[in-house]
Design a protein around this nucleic acid. Structure first.
Lengths: 333, 333
DNA sequence: TTGTACGCGTTATCAA
DNA sequence: TTGATAACGCGTACAA
């Protein structure tokens, strides 16, 4: 077959070589109507010989279906997001969809641009897990009839379904429980621009403290292990007793490592809770107590919902995932 | 604008509404030739009013360019792969490409299927980082004139460039150095079906030992933290001294945790080296000595190379990344 | 069972 | 500066 670049073989060339019309070739490809075995085999042979592959582009244009879905996420670099992505892809493979990936890097302009590109690209549907996009943005998709599943959001419309996360309830319970048994003041790590999920938990944190008339701390914190580690080594020169609520495992680990390096012990002196637990919660020592949602499952579910939405047969347009409390060694209770 | 699903607005409707021909609209969209300001503005206004977005599909069909690249990876769940993916996407954004993601789950049939789909999809280029695909498979792309950058592979052809990884040299050096200073027998964790990279390192490991007439161990190991942890708790009932070479950070952590839970200390009794270091090497305690390649950079570089390849202006079709030795606390030297 | 002809939404060539 | 019109590669009524 050589190495030369042949131009793409078209259905037309196949038809000519097989001595049939291109309609017949199309039928053979798509099994769309009965073709005499004899001609069918002839066509199949030619297809193989010529190495013909139908153009997905032309097919999509003709059928108005791309069998592609768009996925919008802030970044693939977070373990919990990668997990979700994997869940999505798994179902995509079984349902024969392809994933087009768009990341926003926590930038609103990137997010808007993603929407534009996605609409242009004719995807059959979109899964959005990104805090830069608000409801109005997402409804934009609706104007172009592209079905959307919004993860970590509550928004419903004719072609929009959602998978909200339940965190507030649980964090409230964890905190009030701690009030009855614990002995430390709490400190919530505020990460600038870390999105809606963290904000909601932070609000619940504040409210719970206010309702119970308790003192609390909030500390600004970079979304980086190294800087958080340095910051908390400083902090632990002064503070010797604290219950820290961190965004995710890396940050929690930074706090724990800093504490231990300053001679404090976990969980006696310092307790740490990770809001978004991953498998690293069980790898890092001491194991990190965390709030957990199975993101792989979220990914799968979102894809299932999207497929049903595309086919117009989605029953419940909302499916809530409740986080669970996973007690490990970084907290007392 | 309501919530009604309008059919997609076409260039034709824009033309009619603006009282011009569709050719003029096309010119306005693409800035391809001069249009009188007056008509231009009129068209622009109509476009905005109607919410017209050109169909990427039709554009691609007409221009034979999709501005999409395919990325084949085993899974997005590995941190180092997610890092590479992020690097790719970053450059994609600046160069205005879209990423279509294909994962193989270490399955050859999935990998073959990915190739088929990618060829059908008319991507402008492909980045392959997957051990299921051998040279012949990758050359398949060449037959369809789709440029490829193969990561962790050495294969060059008219439209194929590559980014090989340098591990053998370094692992050999690390091992022989250890022979002069170290006191433990080495144990290489063999993971079934973990791909070419690990195999190559394993071969170098064996060869180095043979050349130096040293004894060595090879232990089968699952690519899972939990199972490896259990297995090594068993093993450390018998074995009390060992230098373990593990595939990646999670596995290395499993060995370290098992050792410590069995009363052994790191690195005095057990030393551990991770072949593919990530940021978790510096988070997990004790910090894990590792071989490191900046996968984000690999991703960026592969995309730069691919763009040049697509434009027919790639100078060097091979760009090697050498791993470096990062000494941490899990080994003595 | 097979072929003809039109449509999908663009770009691009050629005239005007 | 603008407008017809032919590709691009395929699916699909409709007719044969």
């Amino acid at each position: 077959m050589g190495n030369d670049f042949k131009d793409r073989v078209t259905i037309y060339e196949v038809a000519k070589a097989a001595g049939v019309s291109l309609a017949t070739v199309s039928r053979v490809i798509n099994n769309t109507s009965t073709v005499k075995d004899e001609t069918k085999n002839k066509v199949l042979a030619i297809i193989k010989k010529l190495g013909y592959k139908p153009s997905g582009l032309a097919q999509a244009l003709a059928t108005n279906k791309t069998t592609t879905i768009g996925v919008i996420i802030p970044s693939a670099n977070y373990v919990y997001i990668a997990n979700m992505l994997n869940g999505i892809i798994e179902i995509c493979k079984s349902k024969n969809f392809t994933v087009s990936l768009y990341t926003t890097s926590h930038s609103r302009s990137d997010a808007i641009e993603s929407i534009e590109k996605i609409i242009k690209s004719h995807v059959d549907g979109v899964i959005v897990f990104d805090d830069e996009l608000n409801e109005e943005d997402i409804e934009l998709f609706n104007n172009y009839a592209v079905p959307v599943v919004a993860v970590n959001n509550r928004i419903i419309a004719s072609k929009i379904a959602c998978i909200p996360f339940g965190y507030e309830h649980l964090i409230k319970k964890v905190i009030t429980d701690y009030f009855t048994k614990g002995d430390k003041k709490m400190n919530f790590l505020h990460v600038h621009n870390a999105g809606r999920l963290l904000s909601r938990v932070e609000n619940a944190y504040i409210q719970t403290h206010l309702e119970n008339d308790r003192e609390y701390d909030i500390t600004n914190c970079d979304d980086s292990y190294q800087r958080t580690y340095q910051d908390f080594k400083e902090r632990f020169k002064r503070v010797k007793k604290e219950y820290v609520i961190a965004y995710r495992d890396s940050i929690a680990a930074a706090v724990m490592n800093a504490a231990q390096d300053m001679g404090l012990s976990i969980p006696e002196d310092i307790e740490v809770l990770s809001i978004i637990g991953t498998k690293y919660s069980s790898i890092i020592r001491p194991n990190i107590t965390n709030l957990y949602i199975d993101m792989q499952e979220v990914g799968k579910r979102s894809m299932y919902m999207l497929v049903d939405l595309i086919n117009g047969q989605l029953q419940d347009k909302e499916y809530k995932f409740e986080s669970i409390y996973v007690k490990k060694d970084s907290t007392k209770f």
